[in-house]
Design a protein around this nucleic acid. Structure first.
Lengths: 198, 198
DNA sequence: CCTACCGATCGGTAGG
DNA sequence: CCTACCGATCGGTAGG
């Protein structure tokens, strides 16, 4: 997990509480006074821990991005697996990272656009890179003959990402289904579809 | 299309320009002064056309919701079709409604949470109803034996909605692929999966 | 559609 | 971590 977020410092606590607030109300609608109140301190006191409101958003977004990258790096090492197996592992990894901190994941997803430049650009470059690496797995599957050659790879990867990204909005981490099973089911649905196998 | 949005009144123009602004910067970060500037008038003059900032958001969200409902009503009438055919028609309809106004669709999707009560509650009830009607189509498909009985229906419908909802973020309406083809491909991918048919 | 303006709230700083 | 405070900006109104 990102260094700051995983620590138990006061700063980390400020960021975790901020994440809850940002998720609930959105970044722009969350005031530093709201945040201070949740922490039981005065707004001005926040600035002993963080440099600015945006620093909080920056840490939340980039710490999550880092975790997603680490997870995908692991998967890409396993070149002994077939494309669909790697895709499955990638999906499971993504969901596991999200499940470790669904609040930060929701902020990562919905609020990153409020980063100012040049951070926004850096963030979007990381995201494009991540998506392209998933797209590569799909292309590998087509090249192998494991996936249909007629599939629209862009549509496939966008559909995959949409479902992954939307998950923090409805997935309940205390539910019966654990992240790994969820990842497997999602991968299976995407790869095999809903239809009865003949 | 919703009455206000489709008209060419000055009010409709204000709302359309607001939609672009809300999409770009988010509802909260968009000021009435930003909006006025885009229209070439003073901020105070906006209030000759609209009652409040929230009225704009309300109209955008509920006009889109109305259009989605009309589309789904049409599909549900076709009980001669199989579940997967109805699902496909539902998906195509949803995408066609979105494609008619991708800007309003993006606002509908990302900014509805800034509606105040009781409008937010009303909106969420409409959305739940809409989702449940798609879920019903999937359940019908399972009951018929057309879809696998092991599928997680909640996961399937959330995956479907995630992809539909995310589309305004990447779909280019001027692209080579028209909404109907896109809907067909998405439905096919969901129903049949990526895997080569044996 | 404009000028003139209001009270509330914003992120953040100085100085302890 | 607090008190005291700043300049900027917010949505919106009065009155034409």
């Amino acid at each position: 997990m990102g260094e700051v977020l995983s620590s138990s410092s006061r700063k980390a606590q400020v960021i975790r509480v901020a994440a809850e607030l940002f998720r609930e109300k959105g970044y722009v609608a969350s005031s530093m006074r709201d945040l201070a109140q949740k922490l039981g301190i005065e707004a001005a006191s926040l600035y002993s821990h963080i440099k600015s409101k945006e620093e909080i958003l920056h840490i939340l977004c980039f710490d999550m991005a880092e975790d997603f990258m680490v997870s995908l790096n692991q998967v890409e090492k396993q070149q002994n697996l077939t494309a669909s197996q790697r895709l499955q592992q990638g999906i499971i990894g993504h969901i596991q990272v999200m499940a470790r901190d669904l609040t930060a994941s929701a902020v990562f997803m919905n609020e990153h656009r409020h980063l100012s430049q040049p951070f926004l650009r850096d963030f979007l470059l990381l995201r494009i890179n991540y998506i392209n690496r998933f797209k590569k797995m799909i292309e590998d599957g087509v090249a192998d003959g494991e996936f249909k050659k007629e599939i629209d790879k862009k549509l496939a990867v966008m559909t995959l990402f949409s479902s992954l990204n939307w998950m923090p909005q409805w997935y309940n981490p205390d539910s019966v289904i654990d992240p790994e099973s969820l990842g497997k089911q999602l991968a299976d649905m995407l790869v095999n579809g809903l239809k009865q196998n003949r």
